[in-house]
């Protein structure tokens, strides 16, 4: 079985976000970049768990420049067998999905993993777009995945509960919380990752359908209205009369 895990590079979760060039560019100065948590903690780790049980081959996929090799090596240290980096700027979901879809046309995989969304652009788009471009089944927001031969059983988040579904390979799955437990790469993994193959491919011809014109930071709040702890009635009145939410 061949598994492709698509990873994205995102700012660390504790990043204080700011912008430059008149709020048109993300300020990456002194920002620590990581593998998008959904891609790493859930998608990648689950893929590795499947590999450990069933001898699957796990390839890491990333669309990005040479500075992404750091996160690619980390994914290999966690347990990926090899990696493919498509050398292009990942600035539009359709463009990224089209790169991966065109790669998959040349080299098919049985399961394509993505995280449920990236924590920077929160698009939740690339996985579904790959599926749409290749007419593959797409299971979104899956919190559990088991494979038995060509059949996979998944749990998918739905409002107020879960849906248990089955699907045949090949398919695309977006991983949400619960699919696996995050792993920390060990020294052996880190050493092994140094010599694992990372293939760099030139970008496929495609197009970008969206671009960001302007960023904005939320307005700073004036500070809360403080209510003495022995007067909860005042809070109730404010919520009713002023905020009008109860």
């Amino acid at each position: 079985m061949k598994i492709l895990v698509c990873i994205s590079k995102t700012p660390d979760t504790t990043t204080k976000v700011s912008f430059t060039d008149n709020n048109t560019k993300f300020n990456s100065d002194r920002v620590q970049f990581i593998i998008n948590p959904y891609d790493e903690w859930y998608a990648l780790v689950r893929a590795i768990e499947i590999k450990e049980k069933s001898n699957a081959h796990v390839t890491i996929m990333n669309v990005g420049g040479a500075d992404n090799d750091v996160i690619i090596r980390k994914a290999l240290a966690i347990g990926g067998d090899d990696a493919v980096r498509i050398d292009a700027e990942a600035d539009d979901a359709f463009f990224v999905a089209d790169q991966i879809a065109q790669f998959l046309k040349t080299e098919p995989y049985d399961i394509v993993f993505v995280g449920k969304e990236t924590i920077d652009y929160n698009g939740s788009q690339v996985g579904g777009m790959i599926a749409g471009l290749l007419d593959l089944s797409f299971i979104s927001l899956a919190s559990k995945l088991d494979v038995d031969g060509n059949t996979a059983t998944l749990e998918r988040d739905i409002p107020g509960g879960k849906e248990i579904v089955t699907v045949q390979t090949p398919f695309v799955v977006s991983a949400s919380k619960g699919m696996a437990e995050a792993r920390i790469p060990n020294m052996r993994g880190i050493m092994a990752a140094r010599t694992k193959p990372v293939k760099v491919l030139p970008a496929f011809a495609s197009e970008r359908l969206t671009s960001i014109k302007q960023y904005a930071l939320p307005k700073e709040k004036a500070g809360p209205k403080m209510i003495p702890s022995d007067n909860p009635e005042e809070l109730v009145m404010l919520l009713h009369n002023e905020a009008k939410v109860i």
């Binding site: 788009q125 790959i130 749409g132 979104s140 359908l209 969206t210």
Partner: peptide, 21 residues
């Protein structure tokens, strides 16, 4: 929504439409 998140990107790819989610 949960289902909207699943459908919109598939639809966008098929129509080659830009998507803002």
């Amino acid at each position: 929504s949960y289902n909207g998140k699943a459908i919109a990107p598939v639809l966008a790819a098929k129509l080659r439409a830009g998507l803002v989610s």
